[in-house]
Design a protein around this nucleic acid. Structure first.
Length: 583
RNA sequence: GACCCCGUAGCUCAGCAGGAUAGAGCAACGGAUUCCUAAUCCGUAGGUCGGAGGUUCGAAUCCUCUCGGGGUCGCCA
């Protein structure tokens, strides 16, 4: 439970009560009041801006208002002191017992600690990866995959009903190119020497697809016209590529709930339906676009085309729905796809895309606004580039030279947990450096290791405790019965406070759609824990295990258990497995 | 030309839902190991948050303008 929320509601009650008693005007708007951890810990445990926010309405000076609120706040359970500071902040200090109670909450909740009902069961559709089915995934896709997956897990933890979705772009020109490329590999499988011309996909990964095609269908297409084989080979190839991609995703621990096919959508008339919907609302017309400025485009010629009135919904210009050959643009089918997602009952839509799609965001948001009549909201997270490094030197990659590094190779080299964690050590829209040497290093420079090490350290103490205390019961239930009043050192309190803030962090991160905050939180928690551990090197009384004091030991173990649970809980949201031992 | 992202310590980056004296890590310097893994920790130093206005009791955070870096810009997805 997010105790800041509880505090907020206590505070609202106080304002109401004072209003009824005539000490304050009645019916003050308390919605802008915030209760949060003060930046500076010496200011206490909870800081509220209540007095500053209410002063205008109450027609009082903020500090006077604060002084009025303070005695009431002091009556709230576990509040040990209330102080008015600065321009009118009210700083509240909570008792150690309060933190002890939160520690018990953690033990009782286990890795469910942090689970929130903020989402109120609202439905969110997170679309991510959606790599074209034309080849194996590269590292950039991997970032989108991790960001999307972690975001989905995060939203689920915050109480949303989440659908994880993959959109298969199996209807455009690219899959025709794929089919033609595979056809050449098919001929190659019969012993022919082929050269992959410019414009087709040269990758080796299509060789086995050509061979399999031969195995399944024999030589029936060797001398056939393209029109006879293209569709069948296309379907065959797309399936093969999707198998490949699904394997890559599985290796990364990413599992989608729904795979949607663009082709199916088109075949089922989804695009027409969506365009009809827009047409009925007079949002489509035939017009001529201005040529793009500042960029020399020789082959540009003004041409009337079917346009969506995107500019009515915040886009800069209206956007084309049909190509010059009359077929639909990608945008047209994407409108249909988002329409479909909305109609399937999503209150919120999230797309995780590569940063190169940045120019696409406005028009898609406009489309969603139009298609949902403002009811659904689309948020687009752009996953920026990943730069692969080896000891600080950029890894040179070239498709031609065959030195292109796939996502799978990276996963196989460093493990999925490392990939997932590192991908979330930057916010999604900042470029990310992925250094093979650094991410596998066992030192504090490596955040994955640093956090995992903290978790492993907890377990190292558990093992030692089992040994020294003759198989002591380390279950949460038993540890929760410990006399926690033994936990009073500053570092111990800090740890408990951090863990108590975990639910609030989940809610904030979920609200902002920023899973990377989890990694930073875990780093902080690990840091606080390492710090306490090291205090024990100088001050023996702060060590966790005391052969002569079972009660103290039990309390310390309860703290350790909670730390390990919160770290595990956070890693779970990242899709990373907590380790109990480091080799 | 328009739009999007970025600009915070020498370097790499956080900055929580507008809050108080802006934080970590690296690098630099000085310390801690008879002890549950020192694979770690503690301390010192380092900043006009690119710049200028505005909104606000209060701005790194929101708005406008401006400078610098990156990206995108009908008939690719």
């Amino acid at each position: 439970m997010n105790f800041f929320k509880v505090f907020h509601s206590n505070l609202s009650d106080i304002v109401t009560k004072l209003g009824e008693a005539g000490d304050l005007p009645e019916g003050l708007d308390t919605s802008r009041i915030t209760c949060e951890p003060p930046r500076d810990a010496t200011h206490g445990d909870v800081a509220t801006n209540a007095a500053m926010v209410l002063c205008k309405q109450a027609k009082m000076k903020p500090r006077d208002l604060a002084e009025k609120l303070a005695p009431e706040i002091e009556k709230i359970a576990h509040v040990v002191s209330v102080e008015v500071a600065g321009p009118g902040f009210i700083n509240v200090k909570l008792s150690d017992e309060f933190w002890h109670a939160r520690l018990k909450d953690v033990l009782n909740a286990g890795t469910d600690w942090g689970q929130s009902d903020m989402g109120e069961g609202q439905t969110v559709n997170v679309e991510y990866v959606s790599a074209n089915p034309t080849g194996p995934m590269h590292v950039g896709h991997g970032r989108g995959a991790v960001v999307g997956d972690a975001l989905a897990l995060l939203l689920a933890k915050a109480g949303y009903k989440v659908t994880k979705e993959y959109y298969i772009n199996d209807a455009g020109a690219q899959v025709d190119v794929l089919a033609r490329s595979v056809y050449l590999r098919y001929r190659e499988a019969f012993g022919e020497t082929v050269e992959i011309p410019e414009g087709l996909y040269p990758g080796d990964y299509l060789v086995p697809v050509g061979e399999k095609l031969k195995d399944v269908h024999g030589d029936k297409w060797l001398n056939a016209d393209e029109a006879d084989y293209l569709e069948e080979i296309k379907t065959f190839s797309i399936n093969a590529m999707m198998d490949l991609i699904r394997e890559d995703l599985a290796a990364l621990g990413v599992v989608h709930d729904v795979f949607s096919s663009e082709k199916e959508l088109v075949d089922n008339g989804g695009v027409e339906a969506a365009l009809k919907y827009l047409e009925d609302r007079d949002l489509i017309y035939t017009g001529v676009l201005e040529p793009p400025k500042g960029k020399t485009s020789e082959d540009w010629e003004p041409r009337p085309q079917l346009l969506f009135k995107a500019s009515q919904f915040g886009d800069d210009v209206d956007r084309p729905l049909k190509k010059s050959d009359g077929s639909g643009t990608y945008f047209a089918s994407d409108i249909a796809y988002h329409f479909d997602k909305f109609q399937r009952g999503s209150d919120q839509l999230i797309d995780v895309l590569g940063a190169d799609h940045g120019g696409y965001v406005k028009r898609m948001k406009a489309a969603v606004k139009a298609m949902s009549e403002g009811k659904a909201e689309l948020d687009v997270k752009l996953a920026q580039m990943v730069n692969l490094l080896e000891n600080g030197e950029p890894v040179k990659m070239s498709k031609r030279a065959g030195t292109f590094i796939t996502l799978r190779e990276v996963i196989d080299k460093v493990g999925k947990d490392v990939v997932r964690f590192i991908m979330l050590t930057r916010k999604n829209d900042a470029q990310l450096e992925f250094d093979f040497a650094k991410v596998t290093e066992q030192s504090k420079d490596n955040p994955v290791f640093y956090v995992q090490y903290a978790h492993a350290r907890c377990y190292s103490v558990f093992r030692k405790a089992m040994d020294e205390f003759d198989g002591i019961d380390l279950s949460e239930a038993n540890l929760a019965t410990a006399d926690l009043s033994h936990l009073s050192d500053e570092s111990e309190i800090k740890l408990m406070r951090l863990m108590a803030e975990w639910p609030r962090l989940i809610e904030a991160a979920a609200k902002e759609h920023e899973p990377h905050r989890i990694t930073y939180f875990l780093y902080d928690l690990a840091s606080e824990f390492h710090s306490l551990w090291n205090k024990g090197t100088g001050d023996v009384s702060l060590r966790f295990l005391h052969a002569d004091n079972l009660e103290l030991t039990k309390a310390r173990l309860a703290l350790l258990k909670a730390v390990s649970l919160v770290i595990a809980s956070g890693l779970l949201v990242l899709g990373v497995e907590p380790v109990k031992e480091l080799r």
